[in-house]
């Protein structure tokens, strides 16, 4: 009897002597950030030039670090190809939804009171959504592993997705009711000046300058996004349904499919980090302690607008949604 040595799976040499052949997802994601912790500096220029200092300070120097980030996996295991395939299908769904409601003349049937709520609550959302897109890109460019970077970059794209569908529907509502709705000023005016929007703007502008990569991640994904997404994807969904706007309700449900994916990778990353270094709980709790209340203050600022709808949703219910969402995510992440 002869025995044949089992052929070792052929993979990238940098992935080591693996017993299990890495998946296609791993083969096109693992160890792409060759520059992380590279000596003497991440970038092959003067080690002291500004961008080297930036990365050494805000990435390598972040308190949110573990010995090895390469073991983290996106629960959705998305490659680019999988991401565009997934979202191609989901966008076909939204295309169909838009078709259906456009053909039914849905926006034309909005009562005046709901048009007012749409104008005050939905139209300006493009601005904060754009900030979420910017902030996700920052997390992506600073993350210490390509497994993390890709999650953050896909998340940024999802923010654009949500924003553009709202922009589209804003034009539809504007065509049906009032040209002034589909102007820059109709969104930027309240964003810059209305009291209700200022706590959110303050939170988001200050979040943009939280440059430590760990803090940028924690502020965005553990504090601001769960609160904001709960307010829009769930709070606005409920409000729309009460006001018989099934299009907005279904669109918000669709947006929350993306947000659920964002929450899943966030929780997985935190759990991964805590498994490697339990002491990081304190670091993350510190950031949650400072950014969680700011995110809730932002929601508190906008929540009264939910009460102005023809069929209102109580402000405290909206805030409770945001608070619960933060707590649930923290729980799923092994914090709190």
């Amino acid at each position: 009897m002869t025995t044949r040595a089992r052929k070792r799976p052929r993979t990238w040499s940098l992935l080591g002597d693996v017993r299990r052949k890495p998946s296609a997802y791993e083969a096109v994601t693992a160890k792409f950030h060759y520059h992380f912790r590279r000596s003497p500096a991440p970038w092959e220029l003067d080690p002291d030039m500004p961008m080297n200092r930036w990365y050494l300070t805000h990435r390598e120097g972040s308190p949110f670090n573990v010995d090895d980030w390469e073991g983290f996996r996106d629960p959705a295991k998305l490659t680019y190809k999988d991401y565009v395939t997934l979202q191609h299908e989901r966008e076909l769904y939204l295309d169909g939804l838009v078709d259906r409601f456009e053909e039914a003349g849905h926006a034309e049937g909005y009562p005046a009171g709901w048009v007012d709520t749409f104008r005050s609550l939905v139209v300006p959302l493009r601005f904060p959504m754009h900030v979420l897109q910017m902030a996700s890109l920052y997390v992506g460019q600073m993350a210490p592993s390509s497994f993390i970077t890709n999650c953050a970059h896909f998340q940024a794209a999802d923010e654009m997705r949500r924003l553009q569908r709202i922009a589209y529907w804003t034009k539809v509502v504007s065509n049906a009711h009032d040209d002034a709705i589909a102007t820059t000023e109709a969104a930027r005016g309240p964003w810059e000046d209305d009291a209700a929007w200022q706590p959110l703007r303050e939170t988001l502008e200050t979040m943009l300058v939280a440059y430590d990569w760990g803090e940028a991640f924690a502020a965005l994904n553990l504090a601001v996004k769960p609160a904001f997404d709960a307010m829009v994807n769930v709070g606005l969904r409920d409000l729309a349904r009460r006001n018989e706007d099934e299009f907005i309700a279904l669109a918000c449900e669709e947006f929350d499919r993306d947000a659920a994916r964002h929450r899943a990778w966030t929780a997985a990353l935190v759990r991964y980090a805590l498994e490697r270094d339990g002491g990081l709980a304190e670091v993350l709790e510190g950031w949650r302690g400072s950014w969680g209340p700011k995110a809730l203050a932002a929601v508190e600022g906008l929540a009264p607008l939910f009460e102005g709808a023809p069929e209102p949703l109580a402000a405290e219910e909206v805030v409770a949604l945001a608070r619960t969402a933060q707590e649930e995510l923290a729980g799923a992440a092994g914090l709190g």
Binding site: R126, F127, H130, M160, L163, Q164, A167, Y168, T170, K171, A182, T184, A187, R188, W191, E192, R201, E202, E205, T206
Partner: peptide, 11 residues
């Protein structure tokens, strides 16, 4: 509407 998203920072 999806690209004219420039604003003046305040905070």
């Amino acid at each position: 509407l999806a690209r004219d998203l420039n604003w003046n920072l305040s905070y």
